[in-house]
Design a protein around this nucleic acid. Structure first.
Length: 492
RNA sequence: GGCCCCUUGGUGUAAUUGGUUAACACACCGCCCUUUCAAGGCGAAGAGUACGGGUUCAAGUCCCGUAGGGGUCACCA
């Protein structure tokens, strides 16, 4: 087993979207596979007919592709252990369930939902520690069973948990966990509709698909003994388990929709980078020995080990995600940002305007240290895409002086003679005006910034002026001179 | 309620498998840089490791108990 190449799987049920907890599980599986030269398999657990969601699988795969977790085998990428949809493997489960019945490790149960409900109620009334099936159908004779089937009474197949030694789980993150067989219920393996339950399908598939390591959320820990009993009944080798800590809300309950976004798509549409999401989610429950926390996918593959997965649940802290997002944004290729900025612009009110790559690249560079998200380029510096429609009154109050109008007029005159001024030329011109007027540069810089951008914050003024260009700068100053003095007067 | 898991600053995590004043990052605060903002740099504050016992020369690390939180007890996964 040690020498086998690892095969791991991410086995979500297609409920409509990819949960960030699912993303983390998928990521750890992926990292483990890649790190160890193994295979990462995607299997769709669609055995609940009632929970069918149109388009969910497509959406899931699309999201997985977006974050870059490419699977080696799965839907539309058949290996030789498919199909990868459990709904297409019904005959397989049936065959193995029959085998179990044959071996007395499982039995047919004809109990009606009503009887089951009554039983549960009685057990609760009796204050039994745990509600369990009472094995009522275990001792049905062959004839009774045949009669029932002939009579068209629907039935399920249940696991026959026999008395015996405790079931021990060896788990990479939790070491050793032991369950008494008394607390293990006779789990339904095949439902009346012929579909398997998770427990049955998951064990059969993991075995048939050659899964060596089962890496999944902690919520599965307490049903793992049932799975082990199944492996034993079949005489199959038990895979190595790794139960991952849960992702939590701020109040430490299991991460839920009610308390914030849980779908990867939500974060995507909010403008988070896939690099940031991956990096952040990787750090929820896992760490390196080093102090570094900025990683791309390849770094993670290189560093990841299951042994360093933490045991306790982790709160999903968006503030840190934001920081990581900004960090990744700054390290991205400018061309990649350009592409995203164009997409953002196309969905903004500036969608009908045309900008050259050259222009946008200048904006990107100038604002890079001032943004955390691509959309911030538009939200934080709209003045690169349209003339100021308003002017920040706080800034006017503080920075606009009696001589501002005059200084800006002088600046216009000074730069109007320049041909294709560069950033430095705007600076030299400003210094000259300041010198001639015998005032500090700041006396011009601040009014100039509000006049051209409407704002008191932004990139260096000379960058701002250069990016806007001489003609635009002059036009904007002229516009501002018509309205800012009035605002100033009104403010007193 | 039964069973199982977990418990280090506000948050995410470290701490050579018992060995100096418990480290790093995010957030927060201050300073520097910048005539803006941000980024960056520097620094501060913040936990004595849930609590209580024990073992030991020595415990966040081992043992026992308690408390709290979480998961799970479906013909859902």
């Amino acid at each position: 087993m040690i020498n086998k190449t690892p095969r791991v799987r991410f086995a979500p049920s297609p409920t409509g979207y990819l949960h960030v907890g699912g993303l983390r599980t998928a990521l750890y599986n992926y990292l483990f596979a890649k790190k160890n030269g193994g295979k990462f398999i995607l299997r769709i657990e669609d055995t609940d007919q009632n929970r069918f969601v149109e388009g969910a699988v497509e959406n899931l795969i699309e999201t997985l592709n977006w974050v870059g977790l490419e699977y080696d085998e799965g839907p539309n990428k058949e290996g030789n252990v498919g199909p990868y949809f459990q709904s297409q493997r019904l005959d397989i489960y049936k065959k193995y369930a029959d085998q179990l019945v044959e071996q007395d490790n499982a039995y047919r149960c004809f109990c009606s939902p009503e009887r089951l409900a009554d039983l549960k109620e009685q057990q609760q009334k009796a204050k039994l520690p745990q509600a369990k099936y009472d094995k009522h159908c275990l001792h049905l004779s062959k004839e009774e069973i045949k009669n029932n089937i002939d009579a068209g009474i629907s039935h399920v197949i249940r696991l026959n948990v026999k008395a015996g030694e405790s079931v021990v789980i060896n788990d990479i993150v939790r070491d050793r966990v032991e369950f008494s067989r008394e607390v293990i219920d006779d789990q339904i393996l095949i439902k009346t509709d012929g579909y398997p339950t998770y427990h049955m399908a998951n064990v059969v598939d993991d075995h048939l698909m050659g899964i060596t390591h089962v890496i999944r959320g902690e919520e599965w820990l307490s049903s793992t003994p049932k799975h082990i009993l199944l492996y034993n009944a079949f005489g199959w080798e038990i895979p190595i388990f790794a139960h991952l800590p849960l992702l939590l809300n701020a109040d430490r309950s299991k991460l839920s929709k009610r308390q914030g976004d849980v779908a990867v798509e939500d974060y995507k549409s909010k403008g988070y980078l896939k690099e940031a999401l991956i990096n952040f989610v990787a750090l929820l429950g896992w760490s390196t020995t080093e102090n570094d926390e900025f990683f791309n996918l390849n770094d993670l593959i290189e560093k990841f080990t299951l042994e360093r997965v933490h045991k306790a649940g982790a709160i999903f802290n968006v503030e840190k995600l934001d920081w990581i997002n900004a960090e990744h944004l700054r390290k991205l290729e400018k061309s990649a940002i350009l592409k995203m900025l164009r997409e953002n612009l196309a969905e903004s009110k500036y969608k009908d305007l045309n900008y050259t790559d050259e222009y946008l690249l200048l904006v990107i560079a100038a604002m890079l240290e001032r943004v955390s998200f691509v959309k911030d380029y538009i939200d934080n510096s709209p003045y690169f895409f349209e003339r100021p429609t308003t002017y920040d009154e706080e800034v006017i109050k503080k920075r606009w002086k009696e001589d501002s109008v005059q200084l800006l007029e002088k600046y216009i005159i000074k730069i109007s003679h320049l041909e294709n001024p560069k950033k430095e030329d705007f600076e030299i011109a400003l210094k000259q005006v300041a010198e001639e007027a015998e005032c500090g540069a700041g006396r011009i810089i601040h009014p100039l910034r509000v006049a051209t951008s409407g704002s008191g914050i932004g990139p260096g003024v000379y960058d701002l002026l250069f990016i806007l260009g001489k003609d635009e700068v002059i036009a904007r100053i002229n516009n501002s001179l018509e309205v800012i003095p009035e605002i100033k007067a009104k403010l007193g």
